[in-house]
């Protein structure tokens, strides 16, 4: 079983990297791009004997306590088959 954890800055936290990417895209003529936020993606592989519920529980805990800093970031856990 595989999982993905997405971590991104909260909407209230300034994202200067996303802004820089957005202005670079505007400079290249992509007028369709209104806004960019940059984040992180973690691709995680679970050991074969792990069941779905406990995997989800562990991943939520790991995302909250390690992968994201809840002061500035939010996260989303996705279990893949």
């Amino acid at each position: 079983m595989k999982a993905r954890v997405f971590v991104s800055l909260k909407k209230t936290v300034l994202d200067p990297q996303g802004q820089t990417i957005q202005s670079a895209l505007a400079g290249r003529g992509y007028s369709s791009i209104a806004h960019v936020r940059q984040g992180k993606l973690f691709e995680i592989e679970l050991s074969p004997e792990t069941d779905r519920d406990s995997a989800h529980k562990d991943l939520e805990e790991i995302a909250r306590e390690v992968l994201a800093n809840p002061v500035i970031e939010e996260f989303r856990v996705e279990l893949l088959d």
Partner: peptide
């Protein structure tokens, strides 16, 4: 110290990058 929760807040990328 902020990551450990011993101090409040967080330190993020400088505004000017």
């Amino acid at each position: 110290l902020v990551e450990s929760g011993l101090l409040p807040g967080a330190l993020v990328r400088n505004a000017g990058l």
